[in-house]
Design a protein around this nucleic acid. Structure first.
Lengths: 263, 263
DNA sequence: CAGTGGTCTAGACCACACT
DNA sequence: GTGTGGTCTAGACCACTGC
């Protein structure tokens, strides 16, 4: 495999000096393999939950050694794009698995023994199809005025309304989304996005602030306007860092907290 | 190297069947090497900023192949305990490096171009040696009444007091800590902990809430009692998950936000 | 130039899951 | 048993750093 070509029919890594003049943009073989696997993931060649070919098969396909494939797959597994299961195979990661459900929800109960840690009760307020306001269009990488969906919902834990969220999604990718469909589905929202729209959220970024609630938030969360709330602004991305969701939530934090691990 | 012994004089991995009866507690060689390196780090055999022996030297010392050492060091590097530098060697990580300073401070300016991202102005209010209140003793793993230090300080960005913090440290480990020493040192606090007390913070956990400020916080941050603040409770750990710091901070978030990457 | 970490290969064997 | 991922080894060569 030559260096810095996107694909190649045969492995020339040990035959040709890989780095005569291209030293500036040198990229190791396993990174190139990683990019190829990622391409297949994005193209939907293997769907969430499916097994991908074994390491030896991939090694044969790309004409590299199994160890090189292993290193590429290792990185994708660490980024939660793939899941390795010893003895079984390597699978495309999915938000539908019990194990990783609510990977992105960091709000935990202060007293885990007395308060539920499980999924919340969800109430979809509405789901509207709109022309994107400028701010929304900008963060989602759309042209101003393109179609977007706006979903509003309330999450309750132990019967206490705790989270109010405003979710913006690109109209083109989520064609056919309705409040009814959201209400009918009992799985996590991101699991439905995978199966119904072929969109897998891979990475997210959250910005947190302390705020006081607006009048309508007071209504939905049944709090006074003096109750400080945690405002969580989330950008979620699919493959290749494509923004696919903008979510603005406010959390009650009197019996729960946002837990963050620093490594 | 036999399996499941903490150390061994020679490599028997290829000689003895590693796993006749101990299948339940099997641990791979590289994990054992990792534990040994970690032990040397904790014991201070190599100090923050120092180079550790080369992969070949470590391989010779532990009687394993270089590849096995590599995998152990890889993991320690990913956990930020070591830093690899191609061509130079592998070094014990330190909070003193420009590159990783304030690794644990997640408060970022809303407008990076106009607001400073750099280190804050620090004002040490006081540093008291006390007998640990029960709550403090519990989280730090001390007996109630053991000595602790309480440091209070204010951090300002662009002349705006933004963070008020209350920091609790075990008295035994930080013997000799004073407000004067804290004020005299211009480095990040964790860098001083390394050089002056031999304590390296390796991992931390933060719990976030929205709160309204107490009367003294209003004073220090010059805000009204109606200003919602982000309360950040941090537990920091040294090697082997030993708790070494409990820190309770309140952040102003009107011009800054807490940024969190979800992967 | 020598020494370090980084990549790649080839082959052996182990642990695990399914059949 | 067969096939999967997981570990370990040995050796080659590349890229980077500093003498």
């Amino acid at each position: 495999m030559t260096v810095n070509t996107t694909l190649l029919p045969e492995n020339t890594a040990t035959l040709a000096p890989p780095n005569a003049a291209v030293s500036a943009s040198f990229s190791p073989l396993y990174q190139q393999i990683k990019a190829l696997v990622l391409q297949s993931l994005q193209a939907g060649e293997w769907k969430p939950g499916d097994p991908i070919p074994s390491e030896f098969e991939l090694a044969a396909r790309y004409k590299v050694s199994q160890g090189t494939v292993r290193k590429a797959v290792d990185e994708l597994a660490k980024e939660h794009l793939l899941v390795r299961r010893q003895g079984k195979g390597t699978f495309v990661a999915t938000h539908a698995e019990q194990q990783v459900q609510f990977r992105f929800l960091k709000l935990k109960p202060d007293n885990p023994q007395s308060d539920s840690q499980g999924p919340a009760d969800r109430q979809i307020i509405d789901c509207k199809r709109l022309r994107a306001p400028p701010a929304v269009a900008q963060v989602l990488g759309l042209r101003s005025g393109e179609a977007v969906f706006q979903v509003r919902r309330v999450l309750s834990f132990d019967k206490v309304p705790t989270i109010f969220e405003d979710i913006w999604l690109p109209g083109a990718a989520f064609k056919g989304l309705t409040a009814e469909r959201l209400r009918a589905d009992t799985r996590p929202m991101y699991a439905m996005f995978e199966s119904d729209f072929g969109i897998r959220m891979v990475r997210a970024q959250e910005r947190l602030r302390a705020v006081l609630p607006s009048a309508d938030v007071c209504e939905w969360l049944k709090v006074t306007s003096e109750t400080p709330l945690l405002k969580v602004e989330r950008m979620a991305f699919t493959y290749h860092n494509t923004p696919m969701e903008w979510r603005i939530g406010v959390y009650r934090t009197d019996n729960r907290h946002y837990l963050n691990e620093l490594n």
